[in-house]
Simulated assay, not measured.
Amino acid sequence: MSVYTRIETEHLARLLARFELTLKGAEAARHGIENSTFLIDADTASGEPRPVVLTVFEQFDGAALAPYLELLASLAAAGLPVPAALSDDHGQRLFEVVGKPAVLTPRLPGGHCFEPEVPHCQQIGALLARLHRQPSAPARALTDERQRLDTFAHHLCRLSEGDQMHARQILEQWAGVDPGDVPVHADLFRDNALFDDQGRLTGVLDFYNACLERPEYDLAVALNDWAVAHDGRPVPRRQAALLAAYRDAGGHWDESILALALAVAALRFWLSRLAGPVSEQSEGEGSKDPSEFARIFGYRFSALGGVEASAPFG
């Protein structure tokens, strides 16, 4: 992920010592836009390699983070491939780095897949079905995704009049859909999943947009990244593979609500990208191109019987 907070090597070594780890090396991760993330090579007290990840949160405070850490602990205990936070020598999972909240997690094996094929989509669909079957209680204290959408809607004024009209149509329809009560990731993009050299899913990262919502919304977020071409057009075989695997793993969805959710999710990430980078003082990506989701929104809106949204910024 992008790096906004810089940490001296000596500070990092002292931090790892609280977890009985010795620093061997570290580098900034470059994908994502919200937090400062460091990939760390460390050794245990017995000399065994113990790769970990340090995440420094640029927008959350400690109180807001606590329920996300509880959710991750619950999901890890249920056997999902997620990085639950480690505890230091005082039993603390949450600590401060340069005055900002931070956590240390195991570094799950594998790498990102940015050119997904059918098998990758199938595994993402099956994973989402497992996630949606988990108890809702651990996610009940999390921020509602519709609240986030309301916040990002402040950027509608940056779209053309036509795009604003289409967006408001979609938001009005979505407001009439009852919220769901299943735990959703809400940000399962390609840079939040890991696969090994054999193409097997080994990890799902970044649950800090997780909440309770309808399963169709989580499916829509994933489909808008895993099952679209570079120009934003849906790729039917990948979309069908993800949905079939989701169904085979016990998932259920409403087709009409999914069609609407695909447009809503595209609009959400179009608007959030228009919101810009967290900081101008960053190393790495900093922000992502809003026009990507402008195009996806156009295709999803058209599929609902409308016309395509205007290109890039309206």
Results as ranks from 00 to 15, higher is better:
residue 107 R to C: 08
residue 162 G to P: 04
residue 164 Q to I: 06
residue 67 P to N: 07
residue 109 P to F: 05
residue 103 V to C: 09
residue 145 E to I: 14
residue 91 G to T: 06
residue 159 L to N: 11
residue 164 Q to N: 07
residue 82 V to D: 04
residue 75 L to N: 01
residue 87 S to V: 06
residue 116 P to Y: 11
residue 151 T to P: 03
residue 84 A to D: 01
residue 120 H to N: 03
residue 148 R to N: 15
residue 115 E to A: 09
residue 160 S to L: 08
residue 143 T to K: 08
residue 100 K to P: 00
residue 124 I to V: 15
residue 75 L to K: 02
residue 98 V to E: 15
residue 110 G to V: 07
residue 59 Q to P: 03
residue 92 Q to A: 12
residue 169 Q to V: 10
residue 161 E to C: 12
residue 170 I to M: 06
residue 179 P to Y: 10
residue 112 H to S: 08
residue 174 W to Y: 15
residue 56 V to D: 05
residue 128 L to H: 00
residue 125 G to A: 04
residue 119 P to A: 05
residue 139 A to F: 10
residue 146 R to D: 04
residue 53 V to N: 06
residue 179 P to H: 05
residue 67 P to V: 02
residue 72 L to R: 05
residue 156 L to Y: 00
residue 127 L to C: 14
residue 76 A to R: 11
residue 83 P to H: 14
residue 52 V to D: 00
residue 71 L to H: 08
residue 61 D to H: 14
residue 99 G to D: 13
residue 151 T to W: 15
residue 92 Q to N: 10
residue 66 A to K: 11
residue 156 L to D: 00
residue 115 E to P: 03
residue 100 K to H: 14
residue 52 V to Q: 07
residue 139 A to K: 01
residue 168 R to D: 02
residue 160 S to T: 15
residue 87 S to Y: 12
residue 57 F to S: 00
residue 96 E to R: 11
residue 127 L to I: 08
residue 94 L to T: 10
residue 90 H to K: 14
residue 142 L to I: 13
residue 166 H to V: 13
residue 86 L to A: 08
residue 102 A to K: 00
residue 84 A to H: 05
residue 167 A to W: 06
residue 158 R to G: 01
residue 101 P to I: 09
residue 166 H to C: 11
